[in-house]
């Protein structure tokens, strides 16, 4: 597998995770990172900086939207929320993820 493909997978995975965290409520970037950590019970650590390009890509694809809002201690923060298309995309991503896992399983079985 070439490195390009690998980063593709990771990128796709990160985006899926971001979408997942936004299903509950809108969050700012830092919050998203923390939420992923929490939900995975610390198993997945997100490279914090790479979160933002991912957010930008998702926004460009119209899967999430964003607005400025006030944070807990009343500071200006950018909040991201899931769009209806994003919700749909998450469903598809989930499904394709399951397919992928199945396929890899099958492959591993076959070569073993």
């Amino acid at each position: 597998m070439s490195p390009t493909n690998q980063s593709d997978v990771l990128r796709g995975t990160l985006e899926m995770l971001v979408l997942k965290t936004l299903t509950l409520s809108p969050l700012h970037g830092w919050g998203i990172g923390k939420r992923i950590q929490q939900l995975s019970e610390g198993a997945l650590e997100v490279n914090q900086g790479s979160l933002y390009p991912a957010l930008q890509r998702l926004e460009q694809r119209g899967l999430i939207g964003s607005e400025w809002g006030a944070s807990d201690n009343n500071r200006r923060a950018r909040y991201y929320r899931l769009t209806p298309r994003g919700r749909k995309a998450l469903g598809e991503e989930k499904e394709s993820w399951h397919r992928f896992v199945t396929a890899v399983d099958v492959l591993l079985e076959a070569s073993g």
């Binding site: 490279n47 914090q48 900086g49 790479s50 933002y52 390009p53 930008q56 890509r57 460009q60």
Partner: peptide
């Protein structure tokens, strides 16, 4: 450190906006 190279992320995002 946890955030990683600010300048690099900045570039990636600029590229993303420009050339997507």
């Amino acid at each position: 450190v946890a955030f990683g190279g600010v300048e690099r992320h900045r570039e990636v995002m600029r590229e993303g906006r420009r050339l997507g």
